[in-house]
């Protein structure tokens, strides 16, 4: 019996961890407090508290997930039941007071207005958490010997009730072209450049390995270095892909005539 009761623990832990990660990413990448204005319970608190409220929720989820994973203590089991029951209430309240707001359960992906499916999902999760109350094993034990069919059934039930999955599919289908997407950080692009063949071919001629200028234009990031003849060596690194295309040119320091030494080089 314990086997069945504990079967949904992995699902619960996975949902809680996903929720934490998605919320933290939303808060850290958002930067624009206005963008939280359509997200979940955060709309019910004043604007300056919205980021902290979302992070507080994420922290609570992480504590519950850790507790469910490591112990069988009733405080975490009942805590999870209370958390999902409260979420159900909050979503119903949100639906009544702010029909335009998304549930924010998984950060900014959950921006679609709260519907029956989101509410149904928290009810199912409350039920799963309720089952786990009487399971006397910690989550780790279930992960060690997973009851696959029951886990799969739980996941399918949740997937059916998750509007986020459709949103994810839409985002992949209608992905913005690369010139409109935010780029990886400059340091990431610099390490990709340093892993390329073009870099190895020119490295020995450079005076320093740190660029003196760098900028992003459309799908390319440019790095400029000085070589020992006081010429500029400019590398253009394509923004997408782990081993991106790299182009390089040496431009004489005085005049603007380019001396392209390489035809397109793929790293």
């Amino acid at each position: 019996m314990t086997f069945v009761l504990a079967s949904q623990l992995p699902v619960l832990i996975a949902v809680l961890v996903l929720g934490t990660v998605a919320k933290v990413i939303t808060v850290s990448s958002g930067g624009e407090p206005g963008s939280f204005s359509k997200l979940g319970p955060a709309v019910l608190v004043p604007a300056r508290m919205q980021g902290p409220a979302l992070l507080g929720c994420a922290l609570g989820e992480l504590v519950l997930a850790t507790g469910l994973l490591l112990t069988a203590h009733p405080i975490f089991r009942w805590g999870a039941v209370a958390f999902f029951a409260l979420s159900t209430y909050v979503l119903l309240e949100l639906r009544r007071r702010r029909p335009d707001a998304g549930c924010g359960c998984f950060g900014e992906i959950s921006a679609a207005p709260v519907g029956r499916r989101s509410v149904g999902r928290t009810i199912v999760l409350t039920g799963m958490a309720g089952m786990a109350v009487w399971a006397e094993v910690p989550g780790v034990a279930v992960f060690a010997d997973p009851p696959w069919p029951l886990i799969a059934a739980g996941l399918v039930a949740l997937a059916v009730m998750s509007p986020e999955i459709e949103e994810l599919i839409d985002r992949v289908r209608y992905r913005a072209p690369c010139e409109q997407r935010p780029a990886p950080a400059e340091s990431v692009m610099l390490s990709r450049l340093r892993a390329s063949g073009a870099w190895r071919a020119h490295r020995d001629q450079l005076t320093t390995t740190d660029p003196y200028d760098s900028w992003r234009e459309l799908c390319w990031r440019f790095f400029v270095f000085r070589n020992q003849d006081r010429d500029d060596v400019v590398f253009a690194v394509y923004l997408s892909g782990r081993r991106p295309a790299v182009r390089v040119a040496v431009v004489s320091g005085e005049d603007s005539d380019a001396l392209p030494v390489y035809t397109p080089v793929s790293a």
């Binding site: 200028d213 900028w215 234009e217 390319w220 440019f222 400029v224 500029d232 400019v234 590398f235 253009a236 182009r247 390089v248 040119a249 431009v251 603007s256 380019a258 392209p260």
Partner: peptide, 12 residues
Amino acid sequence: ERRRVLAAAALG
């Protein structure tokens, strides 16, 4: 202004 020259050189 130099950026324009350098970018044009790199991308041909």
